[in-house]
């Protein structure tokens, strides 16, 4: 009886550890699709006028960073907790400050750690995707992969029968973004679980 109990516990722990991260993440995306798509759309709209990336630099979501890309220079700013100069910096770079602060607040609420516009190349053509990482609570602290990353594309993408992102139609080459294999959420969005957020 004792042995049976012991093996049952081991089996349960094993199953919990192996619970499909993919399903966990796809579910997470579906549950929060509206918020995530809204963040992506607003980011793209602002990015068109003022290219930037936003990051959260600590676990408590209090230390943030922003990269602002101009024609000549990329400015990288970090703001420690208690510092109120984020708004001043945004103003100096001619951003719409309330719009940006609302976006950052929403991102923090979604536990989004990094958002950027990432370039990729298809048949020699430069294209962009929105790359968004979240610190996934459900992954827990014991797992190596702590970040749930979503890539949003403008055009429908191609996937193999395992749902892995391919580099083009009828290709066997799996496309890697930042060295990671991505899995299908829908035709224009895919995800991965990673141990780094950018």
């Amino acid at each position: 009886m004792r042995n049976y109990l012991f093996y049952s516990i081991i089996a349960c722990l094993f199953l919990a550890a192996c619970s499909s991260s993919k399903e966990l993440s796809a579910d997470y995306y579906r549950q929060n699709e509206e918020a995530l798509v809204s963040i992506k759309d607003r980011f793209k709209k602002i990015h068109r006028l003022h290219p930037f990336s936003f990051e959260v630099r600590d676990k408590d979501f209090s230390e943030v960073g922003i990269e602002i890309i101009t024609d000549t220079l990329r400015y990288i700013y970090h703001f420690n907790p208690g510092e109120n100069n984020l708004a001043d910096t945004l103003k100096a770079h001619r951003f719409n400050v309330p719009e940006m602060l609302t976006l950052f607040a929403d991102m923090k609420q979604m536990r989004c750690t990094w958002i950027t516009n990432l370039d990729y190349y298809e048949r020699g053509q430069e294209k962009y995707m929105v790359f968004l990482s979240l610190r996934h609570n459900k992954l827990g602290s014991k797992r190596k992969e702590k970040y749930f990353t979503v890539a949003f594309f403008d055009q429908p993408q191609f996937y193999d029968n395992k749902g892995r992102l391919l580099d083009k139609e009828k290709s066997r080459n799996i496309m890697k973004i930042n060295g990671q294999v991505f899995y299908k959420i829908n035709s224009r969005a895919c995800f991965t679980l990673s141990d780094t957020f950018r």
């Binding site: 890309i69 000549t72 220079l73 990329r74 400015y75 990288i76 700013y77 970090h78």
Partner: peptide
């Protein structure tokens, strides 16, 4: 610090 990497000039405080 103004530095060059990844094909960009960056300024980081």
């Amino acid at each position: 610090l103004v530095y060059w990497d990844y094909g960009l000039k960056s300024l980081q405080q």
